[in-house]
């Protein structure tokens, strides 16, 4: 795993639920079919109300019309990210859209588990709510070793919370990889 993730940030507010991340009507597509699964990227974050999509300005589509991938690599959000349904299609949709990391103040627990056990992307927790300090489109860089987020657009830096006990699963790349390393499967 590279120790640096760099890209444009897409900023969201508090309590982003999994219906907003991937609306239920799209859950019919097969994640294991290469063509069909592109729809998860296409509709990622399509349930977010327009005014709250891409803060602070809002009305910014996460994925361009007719596209299946987003220009934004890093999601920055407030508290309780991923609340609601247990659909693993939610972190999968973000991954398919090209997201490599989410930085939120806190996560809903099933989403957090799914992100880590499925190895879709890396979920970081920020020490303070940085969703009110970063603007959609700012270029940010996450350093895994230092647990820092640098805003290259404004030259500000913020501390992230170390992954703690789940770090071993994240580093392995997911639950199955972790279990194999530890000779559990």
């Amino acid at each position: 795993m590279s120790s640096i993730i760099k890209g444009k940030a897409f900023v969201l507010g508090d309590d982003i639920d999994t219906d907003q991340i991937i609306p239920a009507e799209y859950l019919v597509y097969r994640p294991d079919d290469a063509e069909e699964s592109k729809n998860y990227g296409r509709y990622a974050l399509s349930g977010v109300p327009s005014a709250k999509s891409g803060l602070p300005a809002g009305n910014i589509p996460f994925v361009a019309e007719d596209g299946c991938e987003s220009d934004y690599r890093i999601i920055v959000a407030g508290k309780n990210f991923g609340c609601g349904s247990s659909r693993e299609h939610a972190p999968f949709a973000l991954q398919k859209a090209g997201v490599q990391a989410v930085v939120a103040t806190s996560y809903a627990r099933i989403f957090y588990r799914n992100v880590i056990d499925g190895g879709f992307l890396t979920p970081f927790e920020s020490k303070m709510d940085i969703s009110i300090r970063i603007k959609t489109g700012d270029v940010v860089e996450i350093d895994f070793n230092q647990f820092k987020l640098f805003n290259r657009t404004t030259q500000e830096e913020y501390s992230l919370i170390p992954l703690g006990e789940v770090a071993a699963i994240v580093q392995a790349g997911g639950l199955f990889e972790y279990a194999r390393i530890n000779k559990m499967v």
Partner: peptide
């Protein structure tokens, strides 16, 4: 409690979960 597909697949094969 609710879980995702990866955890469920792990259970299907092993009967266990963390």
């Amino acid at each position: 409690t609710g879980i995702g597909n990866t955890d469920a697949a792990f259970i299907l094969g092993t009967g266990k979960l963390w």
